[in-house]
């Protein structure tokens, strides 16, 4: 299978500090590709580069073979790239279901004229969008709270709401930035199951996660980032045993110590 997302030699510097430096990797459809590394290693920055939030100083990003470097997030969305955020980016004033409905924006009619006139076609599409959003809320276990204002939901719920919103776009590749951070064990298990299920449906997943147990058990491949650079890449078992990785993690908990070597 050819790579869905190809990142090569990508980098960015903030005031002389190379937050991401010459990172290369590729992720395939249906696989879970995880990126781990200590705090400040540049994982979120890498996601911001890939998703068009930041503009890379150098390197290239290809999506399904086409160069997409320098494109804006909304253009990448239309090409099938979606993501979640480490620090929640929720539409707090909107209801839970409206948050997910917004996720379907790229599939909806954009004509403001038709929207102002409230045509039957707009109403029909709204019903369809809502039905699909409800199905996704069902999938992440939030259907009962669909009409609650998002601002009133708990942190763990909002993490799942972000995943539902990202899925609403029907992406080909999904970047998840610490989806289980701050969640209790039950919620983490829930998110774990969800990620595996998403990958099974053929979506390529790039996962940043600190929960080593989660990473080692569900990932197909793991890339280790330190100081913005790739330390190594491999299958979970190899990564967990690698002395360089263990050293990078000293003081931050050994990744292999609790890995299940799947």
């Amino acid at each position: 299978m050819s790579a869905l997302l190809e990142v090569s030699g990508i980098g960015i510097a903030f005031g002389g500090v190379r937050a991401v430096d010459d990172v290369t990797f590729s992720a395939r459809a249906g696989e879970i590709f995880s990126i781990i590394g200590p705090n400040g290693a540049g994982k979120t920055t890498l996601f911001n580069l890939i998703s068009g939030v930041y503009r890379a100083d150098r390197g290239s990003v290809k999506l399904a073979g086409a160069e997409v470097g320098g494109m804006a997030p909304e253009q990448l969305a239309a090409r099938g790239l979606s993501r979640s955020f480490q620090n929640l980016q929720i539409f707090f004033r909107m209801s839970a279901v409206e948050n997910v409905m917004l996720g379907r924006h790229i599939h909806e009619d954009k004509s403001a004229w038709r929207h102002l006139l409230g045509l039957p076609s707009t109403a029909r599409q709204n019903r369809d969008t809502r039905a699909r959003a409800m199905a996704l809320l069902e999938r992440v276990g939030l259907a009962a709270l669909a009409d609650r204002q998002a601002g009133s939901l708990s942190y763990g719920m909002l993490k799942r709401l972000e995943i539902a919103r990202a899925l609403a776009a029907e992406p080909r590749i999904l970047l998840l930035d610490e989806p289980a951070a701050g969640c209790n064990p039950t919620e983490t298990a829930e998110i774990d199951r969800l990620i595996v299920e998403i990958a099974k449906s053929g979506i390529g997943i790039v996962l940043v996660e600190h929960d080593m147990k989660l990473v080692m058990s569900i990932s197909d491949r793991v890339l280790v980032l330190t100081y913005g650079r790739v330390l190594m890449e491999g299958v979970p078992g190899d990564v967990a045993r690698d002395p360089r990785v263990i050293e990078a993690y000293l003081g931050a908990g050994l990744p292999g110590s609790e890995g299940s070597h799947a």
Binding site: P73, E74, A77, Q89, I90, L102, G103, A168, A169
Partner: peptide
């Protein structure tokens, strides 16, 4: 209003 960046990532111009 709540998050321009999340709106853009969802495809909103």
């Amino acid at each position: 209003h709540d998050s321009e960046i999340a709106a853009r990532v969802a495809g909103v111009d």
